[in-house]
Nucleic acid binder design. Structure first.
Lengths: 222, 222
DNA sequence: CCCGTGAAGATTGTCAACAATCCGGAGATA
DNA sequence: TATCTCCGGATTGTTGACAATCTTCACGGG
């Protein structure tokens, strides 16, 4: 039994982790809209578990900041007002600029750029096909890829939450029209700044991109 | 009842939140050293609660990344190897540079600078008195103040965890000697860069400070 | 008509018991 | 001697029941 046929260590997950993931997905997709109370009994019934594991999952989401807890009253999906959205994008900028710099100074810049370009291309194709859903997905995939390539577990964890919140915002305004070409161009500029290894340019492009995205959002909200 | 005598809305906290805070403190101070298993029964007994609330607190810490969960085996205080420490400082750099920029561009720069200068002065005094404990505390207070002044709930939340991890590292190497003057000088330079409103300088100073701190740590670890 | 009072219902917070899983060592077997 | 098997003890995972709290709504007094 000493041969190693490339097996991976079995990594099972605790039930609370599983439930957490599903709830997060629900919040993200808008199945659980902002402000809704998360009833323990009904959710537990839906998941087919007792309230114990479910409550543990809830506490995770509270810690993550996706859920707000009111003592003896219940848990509610966090609502995002304009100030919160600004803060969200401020933090995204912090994380993603750091990620970009890590990627640019990393060992495997060439491969990283290849993957980022692929993501940018996917966005361009979706824009050309006028498939807004695909465009949005490719957009998220780009930013997730950027942070993944940085190879930082902490940046990744924080960013994961931020992306859920971002998706929350966009889901709430589904159907709003954004100019696809602008978005595609902004992402390309980010990639090229990384390729050029120009730290200042990277930061500037990401900042501008976030500012644009934020403006689009705020404009659509009013 | 329309007069507003400056009362604050009562905000009580759930038991799990309270326990979480205490456990976090324990991890930070080294009462619960890295790697130790967190026994549910003994901890529950110590806190005088049942395992329910305690488990909820644990899940929070898992989500925060301070505790690692092994299924059916237990929960362990996360250990930080060199790669983790590097990642920690990378992320701190990301958060604190963003905070510094927010402070520099904020409405109340003057007041903010005042408070930061006060923190820097406290450090200098501790260094002059050769009180290493006070110096370390003042150091932490400076960085916490910096992020608080940014007024960003997200940056704050993330930073809180990072500071716990930082303290974990330092507690583990208690007794090691670092040159106080260097540390004091680095912090002063950060404040002055913010005062000058020079974004690039701010980023550079914080980056260098983090790099220095990281080097000190890694050197001490080996 | 308005406001304070009180009880019913529902929801969350907590607990102690039960089930499942894992780790260690004693003993048997080759 | 080395290895396999099995059992005991301990720890975690899960559950259902009980206690505490909050909300709602009807009722009665001013």
């Amino acid at each position: 039994m000493s041969v190693a046929p490339g097996f991976q260590p079995v990594h099972r997950e605790s039930t609370s982790a599983l439930i957490t993931r599903q709830l997060r997905e629900g919040i993200m997709r808008g199945t659980l809209p902002a402000g809704t109370q998360l009833s323990e009994v009904s959710l537990a019934a839906e998941f087919g578990v007792s309230r114990g594991p479910l409550r543990e999952a809830m506490q995770r989401l509270v810690q993550e900041g996706l859920v707000r807890s009111e003592l003896n009253r219940g848990l509610f999906v966090k609502e995002l007002d304009e100030a919160e959205i600004r803060d969200l994008y401020l933090t995204r900028t912090a994380i993603e600029t750091a990620a970009a710099r890590a990627v640019a100074h990393g060992e495997t810049v060439t491969q990283s750029l290849e993957r980022l370009r692929a993501r940018a291309t996917a966005m361009a194709e979706a824009a050309a096909a006028e498939d807004l859903q695909a465009l949005a997905d490719a957009d998220f995939a780009f930013h997730e890829e950027l942070v993944n390539l940085a190879g930082s577990p902490r940046l990744h964890r924080v960013h994961e939450t931020l992306m859920v919140e971002t998706r929350m915002c966009l889901t709430a305004l589904q159907g709003t029209y954004f100019d696809p070409e602008d978005q595609v161009a902004e992402h390309s500029r980010i990639v090229e700044a990384i390729a050029a290894g120009d730290d200042a340019a990277m930061v500037r492009e990401i900042e501008e991109h976030m500012q644009e995205a934020l403006d689009r959002l705020v404009r659509a909200t009013r």
